[in-house]
Amino acid sequence: MANMDLQVEISGLKLKNPVIAASGTFGFGREYAEYIDLNKIGGISVKGLTLEPRKGNPPPRIAETPSGILNSVGLQNPGVDAFIKDEMPFLRQYDTAIIANVAGNTISDYCRIAEKLNDADVDAIEVNVSCPNVKEGCLAFGSSAKGVAEVTSSVRKVCKKPLIVKLTPNVSNISEIAKAAEEQGADAVSLINTILGLAIDIHTKRPVLKNNFGGLSGPAVKPVALRMVYEVSHSVNIPVIGMGGITTGEDAIEFFLAGARAVMVGTANFANPKACIEVLDGIALYMKNCNLTRLDDIVGKLELN
């Protein structure tokens, strides 16, 4: 392992390794710091931040489904100012990349949050145009190339950090949308956010989630995510960060082969607080067994039949 190099650079965002905790599944890192050494992971994408604090949706907010979960949290967060003041000092104690995941109701929200974050010590901004659990903004922008182009170009004008645009799978042509983000100056794209779904309680004849619909994540979405990562990485030149159901190192390798330069681990953290570390160890083990020393040796190396 001595000469194995797991470092990656995503358009200016330097990661010591390609495993990042996915937004919304890792809070602001505090709780997981009890279970793992945060210095060991490549980065943390924090819970989605909005301009003002948000209360989120009424409970129940989670339903278990076959090999997956549905959530309808609805972007509960303390707001970007409180994040900078109360959470950044804690996060900065660790040697790991901090990615601020941001969401807005309007384009001007996105821009104002990005401006505030210019002066904060975050390493990159991940623009979430893909949350299925809020009524306004967000997914409304993310579901069309035009919407994504508008948000990306506006944020790009004010944002001084590496800019990642997080895409939704709830569209018919994700490549077109990724291209729109690239054309308007995104440094990278990350995908997939959750897939809109429904779970029904047959006894009450009502949805399990109070908010009715929710976002599906976990192993159930992995094949969809892989297909999309493959398509997007073949239609844009900017780096792709892949996620959706990654639970093991082998899962991550599939994403690299499909074209991802880095991966995010989300739902897997819930059942296994050490998931990020285990995914990282699994990647290293695969590379060792295959006598590979650099991630570039596998990124995008999928050959279609």
């Binding site: 919304g24 599944t25 890792f26 809070g27 505090r30 709780e31 997981y32 009890e34 279970y35 819970k47 209360k55 989120g56 009424p58 409970p59 129940p60 907010r61 989670i62 339903a63 979960i69 959530n71 949290v73 509960q76 953290n269 819930f270 607080p273």
Partner: peptide, 28 residues
Amino acid sequence: EQRMGCGIGTCLVCSCKTKVKDKDDWKY
């Protein structure tokens, strides 16, 4: 009781309504 995900405070799915001290407001 509430349905849970992580069980340790990160995923915010297990919410209940609580009063915000000194304010006519609430939070999850």
